[in-house]
Nucleic acid binder design. Structure first.
Lengths: 323, 323
DNA sequence: TCGGAAAGTGAAATCGATTACACAAAGGCT
DNA sequence: AGCCTTTGTGTAATCGATTTCACTTTCCGA
């Protein structure tokens, strides 16, 4: 069932049928005739033929490091809610934290597979920037600032600074920090710097150098807490780059006889469901992940329609959640 | 840059170029000439033109109720790992538990948007079955048994039966159950029935009717636990349809002076990360979600290639996790 | 009443691939 | 040598839409 058959049934030309679907000029009688035939046959124009002709795929590509993650899941949900409302489709690829796959998918999407790309990023190599510069379709970056590119991200630095300040305000004197890998700019680097600067500014005598580096797994948080204590002694406050790490830390501490929060106050980032179920609940930072996905799509659509975004960078707020 | 230009540059016909990319018969010299031109120009055939001509989109559609969920996230990750390895792409839609959207997306995918569909299902109305029967592209159903359709699911009934048996074996006498909505066949109905039958078979005098129905949210688990206690008195063992519900229940119990596990033993389903961070850890059932996604794609590919699956239904195993 | 603008229409070109068909050349077999 | 298969090749049709172009008709204002 193609446009020509519909045209014949309705007694019009295929151009008329095309105009019917694309709000072109068409007389009332023909419109009605076509409407009737379309209804009877259940005809729908072929998406692939339209795509071939118009060079618009009505799809956007999304690249994420993984999908079974609370924060990224929420970003994806935000993206999807806007995308589907607009009659677009979402093509999803996960890199499993493999930078090469990231480049590969960028290249695949670049080859006319999609109208635009949203990249939920963690790490940027020179190669990444090269690849991004050579993209023929617009790209919006989420979760990371990259100057010169449209991006939407959170103020991880200030969040971490404020979180650390809160621990000092609660009377803690000796802090420790468990970082994520520093190559991850937002989660690794920015959050660490926020912590470090807060300690330098507010922590009389407390050393910002008392930190270890963990992977994203809870188990790693557990392990690295042991390492932290061994190398730098016992803190009375512990800031962790993510909630998962913080939960691992809490478990280690509890198993080794520390009372929480009396002996050690533990804080994380992300406001994950996890953070609410521990007792006591973790002190954590809430980021609006879903919103960041929604905004990213809106920016992308703007780029698609006008060729540029008014707002090239969007920095989103946060709040600290206690209890 | 299209196939004709490449053909001209290489001094061959466009048919030869097409054969070059599709393993058609072609002489060694022409193959080499084309290879060189392709390399120099970076040419890649247009996916949309290929799709229009061959009627193969190399995309599969996936419909899920939500994506920011631990179990579904893992299913999606499993799907994606196989899909991307095979040079296919995944089109993802979330229904937000809205059955109408589910039908809508089925219809969209049915219209030649994708080669096949994977439906991560919760509820089946008559309309759903109708829609599924009228699909022109193959569909594989995940997380739910639907006879007559290819599906991959877990043995929720037996898992729940064994879990309940375990509580009895641990000496518990008076159990309670917090169910999910019964319309959800696997999570709501099957798990409840497994519990009920275990209680009837093994629980001398214990009443299977002591249950309440909760939504999937942790908060609802909290609330409904209060209702359960109020209506049916104090149990010494509590089985919950999901880990989230169980966590909510645990919080309620603890806040109301119950010791866990001494006074009440709490069990859930899903082996979520959540279940590991509570103290004591939840007793829970591990389902292989990622694997179910992988198997679903394999079944779909088989359907795509041969027109039928050897194994139309796959029932996956489980194990109970204590501590 | 006339002229130009606007509305409506269909034929045909176009997007960029795949593939049926016709045919030539080469190879293998009696 | 003669015949049949296999291999290699290009031309042209095809997939199913959109859109340019040329043209007719209608409308509106002076």
């Amino acid at each position: 069932m193609n446009i020509a058959e519909i045209a014949k049934l309705a007694g019009v030309s295929s151009a008329a049928v095309s105009r019917y679907f694309n709000n072109g000029r068409i007389s009332e009688e023909k419109r009605e005739a076509i409407r009737r035939v379309v209804e009877e046959t259940g005809y729908r124009p072929s998406v692939q033929a339209q795509t071939l002709r118009t060079r618009k795929t009505k799809m956007i590509g999304v690249i994420v490091p993984k999908v079974a993650s609370a924060s990224i899941g929420r970003v994806v949900e935000g993206i999807l809610s806007v995308v589907n409302e607009s009659g677009y489709q979402m093509l999803l690829s996960v890199t499993q934290n493999n930078p090469e796959k990231e480049l590969e998918y960028l290249s695949v999407f670049n080859h006319k597979q999609v109208d635009g790309v949203i990249l939920v990023a963690t790490i940027f190599s020179e190669e990444h920037k090269q690849a991004l510069r050579h993209m023929k379709v617009p790209v919006v970056i989420v979760a990371q600032e990259l100057s010169g590119f449209p991006c939407v991200y959170h103020d991880d630095y200030r969040a971490s600074y404020e979180l650390t300040r809160l621990l000092f305000e609660k009377g803690r004197k000796i802090l420790g920090y468990i970082s994520a890998i520093r190559e991850d700019r937002a989660v690794g680097e920015e959050r660490f710097l926020g912590y470090r600067d807060a300690v330098r500014d507010l922590g009389y005598g407390c050393l910002a150098e008392h930190y270890v580096i963990s992977s994203f797994a809870m188990e790693s948080g557990y392990e690295k807490t042991g390492e932290l204590l061994e190398r730098f002694g016992r803190p009375d406050g512990l800031v962790c780059a993510t909630d998962s790490i913080a939960i691992g830390a809490m478990q280690y501490l509890r198993e080794h006889g520390f009372r929480i929060p009396e002996d050690v106050l533990v804080a994380g980032h992300g406001d994950s469901t996890l953070s609410r179920v521990t007792s006591p609940p973790l002190i954590t930072v809430h980021y609006s992940y879903k919103e960041s996905g929604e905004i990213a799509v809106q920016m992308l659509f703007e780029l698609l329609n006008t060729g540029e975004t008014a707002q090239r960078e969007v920095k989103l707020g946060f709040y600290i959640r206690e209890q």
